[in-house]
Design a protein around this nucleic acid. Sequence first.
RNA 1: GCGGGCGUAUCCCAAUCGGCAGAGGAAGGGGACUUAAAAUCCUCCCAGUGUGGGUUCGAGUCCCACCGCCCGCACCA
Length: 793
Amino acid sequence: MFPYPSGDLHMGHAEIFTIHDALVRHLRMTGHRVLNPIGWDAFGLPAENAARQRGADPKAWTYANIDEQWRTIVRLGYSFDWDTVLRTCDPEYYRWTQWVFLELFEAGLAYRREALVNWDPVDNTVLANEQVIDGRGERSGALVQRIPRTQWFFRITRYADELLDGLDTIDWPERVKNAQRAWIGRSEGAEVTFTTADDGTEVVVYTTRPDTLYGATYFVFAPEHPLVVERMAGDAEYDAFRDEVSRRSDIERLSGFGDDEAEAAAGAKRAKRGMRLAFDMVNPVDGRRLPAYAADYVLTDYGTGAIMAVPAHDQRDLDFARQEGIDVRVVISPDDGTVLDAATMTEAYAGDGTTVNSGPYDGQPWQETKRRITADLEAQGTGRATVNYRLRDWLISRQRSWGAPIPIVHCPTCGEVPVPRDELPVRLPDDLDFSVAGSPLDLHPTFKHDVVCPACGSDEATRDVDTMDTFVDSSWYFLRYLDPTSEEHAWPVEAASHWLPIEQYTGGVEHAILHLLYSRFFVKALRDLGHVAADEPFARLLNQGQVIMGGKAMSKSLGNLVAPKEVYERYGADTLRATMLFASAPEDDIDWADVSPTGMHKWLSRVWRLTLEHLARIEASGVPGDEDEDRALALRRATAAMVDAAGREYAARKYNTALARMMELTNTLNDVLRTGEAAGVERAVGEALRALLLVLAPIAPFLTEELWGRLGEDGSIHDRRFPDADPGLLVRDTIEVPVQVNGKLRGRVVVAPGTAKDALEAAARAEVAAHLTGDVVKVIVVPDRMVNLVVKG
RNA sequence: GCGGGCGUAUCCCAAUCGGCAGAGGAAGGGGACUUAAAAUCCUCCCAGUGUGGGUUCGAGUCCCACCGCCCGCACCA
């Protein structure tokens, strides 16, 4: 994932880029052609806030940060392709963001409507559902308010099913896929049409349990439901109730469970608030009258904003029914023989059971009732099977001015008119005044009004003054990398079909929903519009862990921040890189309090010293002469084993254990040099060092390059092939096989690899004869691995 | 409450298909070198794998229950 330039690179960036760079360098060394671009997600609020607070020019501010990050990226040796750099805030880029918007608009995937939206009173903008965490704005932390407002949406819900099913086709961490599944929230049920008791007005509800229809004893509307608003117009009590619910949803709902924190911690249930309405509803299956309520626990924007309430089998309904003294009616009898008492039960029963009290459906398993009732409703025209989703359309309007303007002109006669493609980009003015109280774009002297309708030429027309969510910018940037400077097209369709899906995508798990869901939607939509062939943007995802400090997130306010700069200025870039990779597997968090750049620096210095000492010896004694064959062979075997093992560790992206194998070899090298004349093994030492440097090159590019040159090798080490182990050196003459008696280790035998089972067993019996005090009743022989003799008596 | 993940030495962290619990690092003790310190080198110390069951010839690894921690989601009908 590309970085946001809020300042210099932080440890999180260093972590993601280090992992990614080791991976990419290894791929290059194993003969892959790698496209490894970099860019900046350069629109966004911090630039605008800097402008507001310090009078900075957001563009200059952003570019200065990009320059700083760039220098750090170079300093840390990240091998990005420098000729594909892009910045989403450049008009040359956002021109095409606007183009993508128009493509979606014309396909009916971008639309404008009024809705209850999330208003962030601190950042002064609306937010998408995905950007509201626990009722607070993701960035600002402010309590979000629900207000009605006309805004632009992307119709991501059209792809809900495909977004869900596609998860089965991609190699992503399970937790990210689960998060997306939960977010999409598909459920299967039925829509059932109820009617008002007085004039038969139809009201549709969504339920996942149509089999419990006979158990409905009341009916609930969301307080904002249009029918309620209409029917209760002028009712002061209702107005007060609605007001209170709105306030609650802004404060109490968000702060948890009311004022009592102890109660909140214990997970106490939130009291539901409801009001009896002035009319009744009629149950379509049996004609019974159901009292109608408005209550805060029914949401306006899920399902149809109205429910049938079945207290016996839904806990929320039961809580409300007990509170209001409403009847409870049991329609499912538990299979385990428990008898539910409608008068006294306090826990709704949602398990398996047999249908009762439901007229013609009695006596069947509930699943069967569900099928039959749904079919019967359908036949009568009072219901149908449906699928429902938790996912809502993506709200993309932002009342901010450091973003891509929405390329639409509003005309009193023509409505929403797209800006013609050849007039793109709709540029942000350079002279935005950030000292104003509202949106600088809205209040700019000419931006809004200095326009005519592209369709009819009317000068009454105005520009849309909102910008797009910055997640729009980042939902397609990977396509732009394929031809980042083109003025002809957003990206080359043919190349896009070759390079997508991206084989390896690396980034933080904080984007589990946001960026990773939006990008998937974009690719699917753009595919349907013929702009790309792939179904998914990212075939394989690696979520690197977080860098923390002493168990807590690093942050300025906690004063536990360690900047990459501190580390690389003291120890160098290679040490920083290797420290991060050695600390843990890429997926795991790194606690900086636990890691030791000093220790890593010591080891890299050891590699350096071993190489220089080797060179000094060669210089002193000339070309190595005859070898000490046993010690040389042992070293060559150790080298081959390291190359073989490290290669596999690299392939599995386990750089921590790859480094451990390299350290092992330096230990061996040290031992070999200590136990005899260096002259006897000098050639093998040279081979070992060269292999070591090659294997280390993706992790420590600077040190290895320097030593490679000093060893007299031509060209860059980074253009060399990753070494392969000599298979002949991996084969051992003898191996040690543990011998167990009754599962306990009692001895070892040394045999040739591949020794036949019976020969191995014989050797094993001889070895542990002293322990075979009874009859051997069972023998387990795993060739080359172990022998277990089971003795009885 | 639901879903996912993790508990191995003082600490970080390894351990192919279930097959010798220790690869690597850090910290600590002792020693060599040094006028001394740093660096370097040598050496020692250190767990039976959160708890309790089960399967198996054999369990850190598989199954069940529980404890602890972390991360999602959560009035979604």
